[in-house]
């Protein structure tokens, strides 16, 4: 019981994910700043930004469907946080695994994009609606390549269980060569999923 609680809350659970996300954001911003001949933010910047954003006022467009509008971000966070239950982080065995959890994880990771669309649509503001429609359009572009590359590696490992896939590849390290193309495609699709430049049209200024 204690073990499960520790795994879920601390490591490799929510606290670890939170810290890791902040660290990843820092590396991303520092690297892009140095590439642009700038200095970049100090190491605690993402944490400072997080604290600042917590203190901001929640603006609700008056015509918006309040419940859906408030619920969507919660749904997005929950879905992506839940998916870590099935992703092996520290060992080849994830916290929980069952046959077919590759599909479940991919599905859970698609939910945030759908919530962007629903949240934007239900906010009844022209600008958000345009962004929502754009994010859904982008979804069609990158989802299929992402799915295909991940499922291809699953096929090679002959299993639909993420933990078993990880076990397979740790036993046969040479097989990374077959997945090289898939990996590159998945990396680019990931940029689209995270709405990073140049795929940041939904949050672009027009």
């Amino acid at each position: 019981m204690i073990q499960a609680l520790f795994s879920i809350l601390i490591f490799p659970g929510l606290l670890f994910l939170f810290t890791f996300a902040l660290a990843a954001e820092f590396i991303d911003r520092k690297l892009s700043a140095r590439l642009q001949n700038r200095m970049g933010p100090p190491w605690f910047q993402p944490l400072a930004d997080f604290i600042k954003l917590l203190g901001k006022e929640n603006i609700l467009p008056c015509d918006a469907d309040v419940h859906i509008f408030k619920f969507m971000p919660v749904l997005a966070l929950t879905a992506s946080a839940t998916s870590f239950l099935y992703i092996p982080l520290w060992q080849t065995k994830a916290l929980n695994s069952f046959n077919g959890d590759v599909i479940v994880v991919l599905y859970l990771l698609t939910i945030p994009t759908l919530t962007y669309f629903l949240g934007g649509w239900y906010s009844r503001s022209v600008y958000s609606m345009i962004g929502a429609v754009r994010s859904l359009t982008q979804l069609f572009a990158y989802e299929v390549p992402l799915f295909m590359s991940i499922l291809a590696s699953a096929l090679l490992a002959n299993s639909w269980n993420l933990s078993e896939i990880a076990l397979f590849y740790s036993r046969h390290p040479g097989y990374w060569l077959f997945n090289f193309i898939g990996f590159s495609i998945a990396l680019i699709s990931l940029l689209g999923k995270l709405e990073k430049t140049p795929f940041d049209i939904p949050e672009a200024e027009t």
């Binding site: 590439l35 642009q36 001949n37 700038r38 430049t197 140049p198 940041d200 672009a204």
Partner: peptide
């Protein structure tokens, strides 16, 4: 056009 690096270089 989303090319922020050009912005940083030219403004330098």
């Amino acid at each position: 056009i989303g090319f922020d690096t050009l912005l940083m270089y030219t403004w330098r």
